[in-house]
Amino acid sequence: MSPRRLDTTALIYLALAGVVAVGGAAVAMDGGNLFSTANLVDMFTRTSLTGFLAIGMTLVILCRSLDLSVGYTAALSSLVAATTMDGDPGRIVLGVAAALLVSGLIGAAGGAVVAFLGVNPFIATLGVGLIIKGYLDTRYKGPAGDVPALFQQFGYTRVAFLPISTIVMLALAAAGIWFLRSTRTGHHMYAVGGDIDIARMSGVRTKRVLMAAHVLCGMAAGTAGLLLAARFGTGSAESYTNLYELDAIAAVVLGGTLLLGGRGGIAGTVAGVLILAVLDTVFNVMQINPFAKDVLRGAIIIAAVAIYARRQLGRTARRPRFDAATTGAGTGRP
């Protein structure tokens, strides 16, 4: 199991290195330097927001679930944080806590609908997202709240070329990797995503695991909302229009985590986020039409998943012994 996972992750980092090399060469031929401080800052700044969302998304996707509400959760979290802080540096801790609490509760609500009501996660989290959207549209007509200058540092300060937000994101990723590798709940997430019935029969409390993944995903989205608040200096309901959830899912899938659950990890996701950020920066430096970016991004995502699928097919063909076992388990599901 573990050498196989290492395989995919290694492949993704190889792809990242390739993207960096090709991007650097392309920018150099254009007369620029991809590795200048300004460009590096731009590149890493792009990683943090998608990174937070994608780390949480990895957990739910590993459990064979999905969260389409993270963009709305982040928008709501930015508003909760900004209105709670209300310009007072003494209320920063309170604002952060309130934002994380609200986003965790939203994650819990989505998780409960998935785990206890048996609703397809696509529908459950789309529904939760729509409910938040309606609330945001009705309650907030424009930006609200005020983020004290001290907390805005979270959005702007950097150490050399690494923004603080990116460092926090990487720390969260490291914590997530440890969580998946070394804790019982982390292992159970792979089990639930692999086959929820077999996991249940083996004594895993599948509903709790699903709930845990969704709560953590919600809180990761809440952290992304805090970053939004720090960057804008105010809470912004409009930020959900950027379809962050699709970006996050793209990064996760690009990072080699199977949409069908049970295989993948956060290390790959970080590489996926980095690949997207490098591409964005390269397009930006070379002043490629932003719409061409969308086209290329769509094509890259499809191509990456097609390549992963090919690798998987090759592997099952080589091992007929396990093929029979997995197909037997697959059809046992109602």
Binding site: V113, I123, L130, K133, G134, D137, T138
Partner: peptide, 12 residues
Amino acid sequence: SIRPSVQGAIII
């Protein structure tokens, strides 16, 4: 503006 909320609740 409240339509999405009702739509979301109904679909769930």
